[in-house]
């Protein structure tokens, strides 16, 4: 505050610096002040109308407001609008999808891309937990993106698999359950050689003999290749249902797959069950088809 004010009449506040730099007392324009006060008044109505004030009792509660508005409700309303819009927009395609077979869908370029585009979320919700988000599989769960199929890679076969589920069966220690540890080790070596294309080497003659003795050919085929897709793995290719690791191969042969006694899984047996999705999926008639097309298009469909 300057002691000496050379401009007493201009309405300055008396704060003067550097001889002539002074603060004037200019009120803001009326319209500005009015909108300023109007803002305060608006806050009152806003606070009454919308949820606003948190309560102090640590309950996480707050004043709800007279409008009863909530963010989640608004989101749901918006989402309903979007869902209805989608439903209306794609009604004819959905109808068409219901009447077509999977093979027909695959042939129809437009319907195929529609089926694939609308399956992504379903696949994520119902399939990805075991088969991976992109069908890349998981340890002990089959890869869907390759061309090796236990139950057939044709669209109709895939559809049947999704609809009814699949339960593979492999008896422990050969068909009769009578293979010795040594025999199992021999046949494991033979099977690994098969996938490398060396099945006829004399080195693996012992294992080959066990393959016959254990009646493995009943399911896996005389040369390690199943005659028809019925759940048995193709032993001649380079895709492994469980693992290419020798210990793991021995383990599978020793304990089998889905071996039960009195309805209880035996210890060590591989549990490999694909549930039936016609009961699980909503709107299954259409959605199973959709997913079959999607899986077929992942990269290995036949």
């Amino acid at each position: 505050m300057a002691l000496h004010n050379p401009w007493p009449d201009e309405g300055n506040t008396g704060h003067i610096w550097d001889e002539d730099l002074r603060e004037l007392d200019n009120p803001p324009p009326l319209w500005w002040m009015l909108s300023f006060y109007a803002g305060f008044i608006m806050i009152v109505f806003y606070a009454l109308y919308y949820p606003t004030i948190p309560l102090t009792d640590n309950s996480g509660e707050f004043t709800k407001g007279m409008a009863g508005w909530t963010q989640v409700e608004e989101y749901h309303d918006d989402y309903t609008v979007l869902k209805d819009w989608r439903k209306a927009k794609f009604a004819d395609k959905e109808e068409k999808l219901a009447t077509m077979s999977v093979d027909e869908i695959l042939k129809d370029e437009d319907m195929k891309s529609y089926a694939v585009a609308t399956s992504k979320m379903l696949f994520g919700d119902y399939c990805a937990a075991c088969h991976g988000a992109g069908g890349q599989g998981n340890p002990n769960f089959p890869v869907l993106a390759d061309d090796d199929w236990l139950w057939g890679g044709k669209a109709a076969q895939i559809e049947a698999t999704i609809n009814n589920g699949r339960i593979g069966n492999m008896p422990a220690k050969g068909m009769m359950g009578n293979l010795t540890e040594q025999e199992i080790a021999d046949v494991a070596d033979y099977v690994i050689a098969l996938s490398e294309g060396k099945g006829n080497d004399t080195t693996f003659a012992a294992g080959k003999a066990v393959y016959t003795k254990g009646m493995c050919m009943a399911c896996h085929g005389p040369a390690g290749k199943p005659l028809a897709p019925a759940g048995a793995a193709n032993l001649t290719d380079q895709v492994w249902r469980f693992s290419a690791d020798r210990d793991e191969v021995i383990n599978v042969i020793t304990n089998g797959v889905n071996v039960k006694k009195n309805g209880v899984y035996l210890a060590g047996t591989k549990q490999a069950v694909m549930p039936a999705f016609k009961e699980r999926l909503p709107n299954a008639e259409v959605n199973v088809k959709r997913l079959a097309v999607y899986v077929h298009a992942l990269g290995g469909g036949q």
Binding site: G132, A145, D146, D237, Q238, V239, G299
Partner: peptide, 16 residues
Amino acid sequence: RAPLFVQMSDGNIQNK
């Protein structure tokens, strides 16, 4: 990206 590559039965590797 999921999967980055796939082992095919004939020994090929497939990318998509």
